[in-house]
Structure formats: structure tokens, C-alpha cells
Amino acid sequence: MSKEPMHTALVSPKGRWWERAHATEKVWFGIAFGWCMVLFAMMPLWHWKGGQNPSGIRRKVDPAAYEARVQQFVQDYKVGELKGIPVVEPPAGSDVYLLGRMWSWYPVLKLKKGVQYTLHLSSKDVNHGFSLFPVNVNFQVVPGYDYGLKIVPSEAGDFGIICNEFCGIGHHMMLGKVIVTNEDGSMPGEKTASATEVR
């Protein structure tokens, strides 16, 4: 026990205050330090064993060049239109290009369940936020940067793309769409419908 009486944090400690900590403080220090190491280890561990990482293929890109690449992509694989926005169905496993711009996501994507794609995200103007609804997967979309993420849609259905980075006054109107079909190209609704017919 120290010879000086204990004091509040408002007074100047006199003499030598560089004293050994009490045993309990040391124990807590050890526990807290160990926990911090667990927190740290989890991230590399998930890169190694886990299925969801924001690594991606990342490169700088000129916004105009990126927009041209998206147009090319639309031309190559367009299969229809929805509310005036082209619907694009790229081959399984290919590169998919999505453009964020004030205030729409372009184009509508049609993907297959269980297949891996490389989804490229970039913006033509300001920052946008890619937020896949209702899966709740979120990425920042920054003009001048191409973020290529390997994704595997794990369920069929209609998905929305909310913009969740403020991008100006029309921010809340910016809603895109991803349609995921079953492996055979059918929609989940269609399949159940035909299944009931057969029965």
C-alpha cells in the first residue's frame, strides 16, 4: 500500500506516481488486451475462411470511360426494358457493370442464382451508396474508382438497390433493381406456379 493517501483526479499527485498497479487492474488489463487480440485476429481469419469480404478488384477509372464500358455492356446483353431502363442479362460468370448517377442505377441486372459474377460499381458524378435490398449488403460508390466485387446471388427473386449515400436532392428517388432467376432461368414465382399446375 502506498504511503501517500489516495487522491481524486483533481489534485496534483505528489512524489512518484509511477507505481505498480493493483493485481485486479493488471488482470483486467490482461483480459482487455487479450480481447483486443481476438478482435484483431477475426478480420484476417474471415479473409481466409469467411465468405464475405470487401476486398474486390480495385482500380482508378475515368468516369467517362467507365460510362462507355457500361453502355457497351448494355448493348451486348440487353434482353428487355423496365420503366425505360434496359434490363441486361450477362452470361454466367462474366463481368457485370453497374453505373450510379444522379439519380438512378443503370441498368437493371438479371443474374442467375448460385453463379459467381464480378460486379463492378462506379459513379459518373458524385458519391453514391450501393445497398442491396433486402439482403443488406452495402458498398461505397466513388467517382473515379472501379470496385469489382465477386458476388454469388444465393437466392432467386427481385432485389432493390437503394442509394444510401446522400447524392443531392433526388437521393431518395434513386432505386435500382436486380432480378435473380433460378439456375434454369425461371423466376421463383413461375416455378411454384407450374409446380401447382402439375399437381
Binding site: 420503366k83 438512378s104 451508396g129 435490398f133 433486402p134 432493390g160 444510401n164 449515400e165 431518395h172 428517388m173
Partner: peptide
């Protein structure tokens, strides 16, 4: 946790091209 965005005026998306 449901994916509701921050900084968003209208999560009913009444002015958006699609229903959600």
C-alpha cells in the same frame, strides 16, 4: 439492421421508378 438507410428522406420510395 433491416437495411434502412441513414440520411434518407423517403423510405417508402414513392418517387422511385420501382415499388419497394
Amino acid at each position: 439492421g433491416f437495411g434502412v438507410p441513414r440520411r434518407h428522406w423517403d423510405i417508402t420510395f414513392s418517387q422511385a421508378p420501382f415499388e419497394q
